[in-house]
Design a binder for these strands. Structure first.
Lengths: 217, 217
DNA sequence: TCTTGTAGTAATCAGTTGATTACATCAAGA
DNA sequence: TCTTGATGTAATCAACTGATTACTACAAGA
């Protein structure tokens, strides 16, 4: 890897460099998804996010205008990543796949995305805030945006979409609770095998080898 | 309602009464499930729990030996309620229902239980802590206990159980994000109708009429 | 009546946290 | 060169939070 390939957006954030606001913004959002995902909205401190992004706590707060606005931006970014991943997958559809093949392709895209535990958990945190004054409607909007992509762009029927999201939510919860860590328990093995099918073994290996905090980054 | 029917376990906790430790314990756990569910583990303060239970913050901390132990107890209680609700439902099985009827009965039992938003959200919070040192294994244990009841006691096949939990997780997420509040949006209406079937209208009414904080208590 | 164990609280404290302020550094245009 | 706007930080603060301590009040048995 030569120096010219250095990408400040994905590189481990170094201290003291002067970068454009856009790049910093993306770094901070990536850090925020990790920290908010792990510790929740209340438990995720702006200081922890700042340290993970390699900037000062004061800068994080000022750039986003407060903790709640930062969480909003972080959650919207996570939801947008799902939409983008689905749209990219759908763009490759020829139009004559069986519904089952379309849902399978979307499932694979989803799992590949939420290997980044920050994305997975930030979405989960968002969805558990439905009762919140300002964040509740954001949660519903984000979910419905994904739903519409699956229904309209991917062309799944309501019933097919429902089955897809059911499987997706179970997948999400099993990964959130790190069920692969319970491998060896007969019930856990059966459940994982049935949910992930042939990919189960691969996923167990992925999950075991990867540090929880940063999604392996 | 006569005075003799007064039940300190479910009655709004009054200040200054002297009750047995067992009763106080249940009151505090009920309060904890509401507060932890709403604000998450970090955001749920022992003070808010104490106020909701009608006791002092110091008493809450001392009775459970710390905030984490209180959360553990609260999460275990929520999971146990699911197990109990399923076992009660299963006890009424004659043994010759179709699998579809068994899963439907379990679904109804689950929805009736998680009308208490505290139970719903506390479980969700627990499951999103899979990476936590001590709470992660608790999350997996609790989920697997429910899974075993559905597989062994209810006698569902792995595939049937998988479909049941998929639907259950989607139900859980939709209720967590208060999707019924988005009624009127075509996508939301279709999604709710497809997920909850004929019960959808009833659920929308229930959710709309009920204060989020206390599950209607 | 006296004692003892249980239920319960007020007061307090040290650590944490989001936010603010004032200041420093640097690149680019005039 | 000088100014100006943007990037970025150190220092500080008020509010909050979990925990501890020392205390009170009451009920039941001896």
């Amino acid at each position: 890897m030569s120096a010219s390939e250095f990408d400040p957006t994905t590189a481990p954030a170094g201290r003291g460099e002067r970068l454009s606001a856009d790049v910093r913004r993306e770094q901070i959002l990536a850090a925020a998804s990790v920290v908010f995902g792990e510790r929740g909205y209340s438990g995720g401190t702006t200081d922890a996010i700042a340290r993970q992004a390699g900037v000062s706590q004061a800068y994080v707060v000022r750039m986003f205008g407060g903790k709640e606005k930062l969480f909003r931006a972080s959650a919207e970014r996570a939801a947008q990543k799902v939409v983008d991943a689905f749209r990219t997958t759908i763009a490759d559809f020829t139009g004559d796949e069986a519904p089952h093949d379309r849902t399978l392709a979307l499932s694979v895209a989803y799992i590949n995305l939420v290997v980044d535990r920050g994305i997975l958990l930030t979405l989960l945190q968002l969805f558990s805030l439905g009762h919140d004054e300002g964040l509740g409607s954001l949660a519903r909007q984000c979910f419905l945006r994904v739903y519409r992509v699956v229904r309209e762009d991917a062309g799944l029927s309501p019933e097919e979409a429902n089955a897809f999201f059911g499987r997706g939510m179970l997948t999400t919860m099993l990964l959130a609770m790190r069920m692969p860590d319970a491998a060896g328990d007969p019930a856990a093995d059966e459940l994982m095998a049935c949910t992930f099918g042939e990919t189960s073994t691969t996923l167990i290996e992925l999950s075991r080898g990867q540090i929880p905090l940063d999604g392996g980054r």
